[in-house]
């Protein structure tokens, strides 16, 4: 711990240093192409009977598919990564909170163009 400094922080990020041993294996794609549905699975054994519940949400806001996955936990509460601390009483409640907390306007996107330029012409 004592060997890490402010300079390490700056140089690691500036150089794009690899700080993880392996890439995430089970990750959903943050902000990538939207999936139209997301399924979550709940299983339980009750009186020797195996219960399996698959729940799929297809959510649109103003006709546009929601990109962030929704999952449902055993107690029926609904979760999504966009509001990670929130266990909603229903999917509708969660969508309302998403609308409340997301900005209506996005800034001009310079980043995408810069990343595309790097991917197209400067890949080593």
């Amino acid at each position: 711990m004592a060997n890490c400094s402010h300079e390490d922080l700056i140089s690691n990020i500036k150089s794009g240093k690899r700080v993880v041993e392996e890439a995430p294996k089970h990750g959903h794609q943050h902000g990538k192409k939207p999936k139209l549905s997301h399924a979550s699975k709940r299983e339980a054994i009750y009186k020797g009977r195996k219960i399996r519940i698959r729940t799929t949400y297809k959510i649109e806001i103003d006709g546009e598919a929601l990109t962030v996955p929704f999952t449902v936990s055993d107690d029926g509460r609904v979760h999504c990564h966009g509001l990670p601390n929130y266990a909603a009483i229903s999917a509708l409640d969660l969508v309302r909170r998403l609308i409340d907390t997301s900005p209506k306007e996005q800034p001009d996107d310079e980043i995408a163009a810069l990343l595309a330029k790097k991917a197209g012409g400067h890949r080593s």
């Binding site: 794009g16 240093k17 890439a23 995430p24 943050h30 902000g31 990538k32 996005q106 980043i111 990343l115």
Partner: peptide, 18 residues
């Protein structure tokens, strides 16, 4: 853009915009 490259180099699927 450096942050986006760092995430990409580490295989972290985080998308940037703005």
């Amino acid at each position: 853009v450096d942050l986006a490259n760092f995430a990409q180099n580490n295989g972290i699927p985080l998308q940037f915009e703005g």
